[in-house]
Amino acid sequence: MALTDSLKDKLLRNTGFFEGNDGYSTVSGNFDGQGLSFGIIQYNFGQGTLQPLLKEYIQNNETEFKAVFGTSKAATLKDVVNNKTKSQQIDWGASISTSGGNVVSEWKTLFESMGAKSANQALQRKYAESYFDRAVTFAGKFGIISTQGLAFLFDHSVQSWSLSGESSIISEIKSLEKAWRDMGETGRYPDKERLYSVLKGVSGSDPIARRTAIRNGSGTVHGKSYNISTFGLSYSTNF
């Protein structure tokens, strides 16, 4: 199923809320051992997700890239991206990180400027395709049709990728749906109830907190107040 560009942007911004404060320009240092994380869903060196994005951006937009970073820093970053091993890239990210897991200001402001460029944002959306596809696949398995349900599954695909006990989740949904109908309910078994079962396959305090907030539509995560309506996603709109 093809998702619209508008919906993709909403899903990215929704997950971006949990990943940082600056959307496409969010940049983080080596707080998690990934060296450097950048962008709306925090592509990073450690997982190998940042390198291809930066390579393509530099290759296709080198004039803009040099204008953003300046000759010297552009050359440094280009060398890191194109010529260093993953472990060396992680080490370089660590070298420009602060003790609090941020990035030193002389590099932070440049990455933020790059994230504001439309060409870079387009690549961030392009490199999120595998996560969109993963979320749609999950939706098919669990019978999810709403944009809010898809937001739950997209956020999980980005942060965790896998779900524990998929077959058990599917069985539980079918069982609860039957019980729901046996009680005289008509219409479609709601996505919110389906996600109650999917949530059981999520592990880890932070993933559970994020997915619970998305399922409920609001909550406090990472000390920030979350409301899914901000991103134009709901149980009443389908994808």
Rank of each mutant, 00 (worst) to 15 (best):
D133Y: 03
V80T: 00
Q124P: 10
R134P: 00
T98F: 07
A116M: 15
L77V: 01
Y131S: 13
G93I: 01
Q47C: 08
T109G: 06
G187C: 08
R125G: 02
R215C: 03
F17L: 08
Q124I: 08
T186Y: 02
Q34E: 10
Y226R: 03
I96Q: 11
D9L: 13
Y196I: 06
K84C: 03
R125T: 15
E62W: 09
Y24C: 03
W107N: 06
F17H: 02
Y131G: 05
A75E: 05
E19S: 13
N102Q: 13
S171F: 06
S229W: 08
T220G: 07
L123M: 06
K117C: 02
F142E: 03
I214H: 06
K8T: 03
S171G: 08
F18V: 01
K66T: 14
V158I: 01
L195C: 07
N21E: 05
H222Q: 05
L233K: 07
S37E: 10
S146G: 10
R134F: 00
S236M: 00
G16E: 01
Q124M: 06
Y24K: 02
Q34Y: 10
S160G: 12
R134H: 04
A75F: 00
T26I: 05
S105M: 09
V198S: 07
T26D: 06
V103H: 04
D32S: 14
K66M: 07
S99N: 11
I228P: 02
Y189A: 11
G33F: 07
T230V: 01
E106P: 00
V202F: 11
E193Q: 15
N102I: 07
G33Y: 07
I214P: 00
R188K: 04
R134Q: 13
G46F: 05
R211T: 13
R125Q: 11
K117N: 12
Y226V: 01
A128R: 01
Y235H: 01
T147Y: 01
G204C: 02
N102M: 09
S25G: 09
W107D: 04
V158K: 06
Y127K: 07
S225N: 13
K55L: 14
A119I: 12
S130H: 07
S218Q: 11
N238E: 11
K55G: 04
T71K: 14
L7H: 07
N216R: 15
G201E: 04
T71L: 14
S167M: 10
G232E: 07
N21A: 10
N102D: 15
D22Y: 12
T15R: 03
G140L: 12
S160L: 02
G35M: 11
A213Y: 09
D182F: 01
N82G: 02
G46D: 10
A67C: 06
K126Q: 14
A2F: 04
S97R: 00
S37I: 05
N238C: 05
V103S: 02
